[in-house]
Structures are given as structure tokens and as C-alpha cells.
Amino acid sequence: MAGDLLTARAVRKEFGGLVACSDVDFTVPQGGIVSLIGPNGAGKTTFFNMLTGVYTPTSGEVTFDGHEVVGLPPHAVTQLGVGRTFQNIRLFPTMTGLENVLVGMHARLKGGIFRSILRTPGLRREEREAADRARELLRYCGLPREAEHTYAMNLSYGDQRRLEVARALGTEPKLLLLDEPTAGMNPQESAEFTSFVGRMRDERGLSILMIEHDMKVVMGISERVTVLDHGEKIAEGTPGEIQKDERVIEAYLGSAATADNGDGGLLE
């Protein structure tokens, strides 16, 4: 399939005897926005971790941009162009906003050990340009100016979420993985974030894959939605198709009503 940036074929992960992810096929088209939904414990984050090299799948293969991903360590996957955020924010708490983004740029910078000690003109230029770009990213993601010099742990919750995105953008990704990016945001912030995701895709030519619980966000922006339950893919299609799918409604039954009833969404 020519237009696909990421392809996962029959990906499977077992922990001991437990099957966390069972032979899932999955694609993200170039420039697309795809959502991954499913009840808690459905294996979404496990799947994410396999795409980013944190876990090695028990079997199956993952191709990104023409490269085999399975078996690569996480940093190598990031170097290929997969940036990610974390469900439970994992910033570097005692680094400033700027430093966090600069760590994100690590793979894109070259400053080696000897040039760092000598601080050559070339290195100084590189560092200066990187800092400029990092500042730009902070502003792009809507962080206040003072976030640049504030320790990540002292930023507000919303700003921490935004900084995670800025840091992931610092890795210059082709594909951005967002793990529950609007968790803990109020409806207005979620709406803003939704439009921001669309803008990122359009302005930066990214493809986006997100795990999301807020159905308003999912249905509002995704071009395609994949539903996981108990480690299996139970449905895939446009948001409209998913909302009507019998198995999806069944999977969520007991925890909430249907997708139509607004902000709580399927899960809440």
C-alpha cells in the first residue's frame, strides 16, 4: 500500500500466557489522522509501545516509512520519525521547558563530545539555532513565554500537556503518536486541542495517531477510527461507521451509553 506511512501486520504481544495484543493489522495513511479507541485494558498502550520500540512484539511486523521497526530500540524508532507523548505525562521534571524541547531535538543535533568541550563556532551556531527553533515550538504549541525558563514540574497541567507535544515535535516526526492527549482537560481546552491537532497536520505535514477517550475529540477530527477490545481489533472505519457498529457498542456497554451523547463519551 503506497500511501501508508505506518503498517502493522498481525502484531501480537504476549506477557507470559496473557495475550495483550492479538494479531492486529493496522495502518496509518500518509497525512492522515487516525484514532485508536477501546475500553481500559484493551491493549492500546501496549500497541503504542510496540510501534515505538519499547516492547518487541511476540510476532508480526511493523513497517514505518519503508523501514522495519520491530527490534529497533526506542531511540532508533524516534530517529526514523516517530514522535510520541505519554498518557501519564513524562516530562523531565527539573528541566526547563526549553531544555525539554532541546532533549527532544537530541537526535537531530550533531554536537559531539569534543566539539562540545571546544565549543567550536559551528557548535555554537547549532545550539543557537536549536534554541530558536525550540522557542518557536513552545510558542507554536501555545505555551506562555515564561515556560521557557520554568521547570516542567512547575508548569500548569495544561501547559505540561502542551510541552509534551512541543517536545515530541522537537524530534521532527513524520508520525506523531498522542497517548490520551486531552485527558484531564476541560471541554473548552479539549476543543482547542482538537483544532490544534488538525492545524499541526496541515501546517507541518504530519500524520497523527492518537489514543483518545474523549469521543468528541475522536469523532470530531479522526478520518479513521480503530477499536481494540481485549487485545483484538473489533472494528475499523470512519467515525460515522464506528458509532453505528454493533460490536463497538457492545464492547462499551455497561460502562456508558452510545457515542452520540456528547462529552462524557463512551467511557466516562
Binding site: 520491530v70 530500540p73 526514523l80
Partner: peptide
């Protein structure tokens, strides 16, 4: 698991963990 890769286009590396 020595993860020394500049560019990640090496199939050797992909096989390393299992190996």
C-alpha cells in the same frame, strides 16, 4: 543489546534482541 545506531536501516539490529 548494544543500541548503537546512527541511522536505523540495519536489519542486523532488528534481529538483535531475539538473537
Amino acid at each position: 543489546m548494544t543500541a548503537e545506531s546512527g541511522t536505523a536501516r540495519r536489519p542486523m539490529l532488528a534481529a538483535l534482541p531475539r538473537f
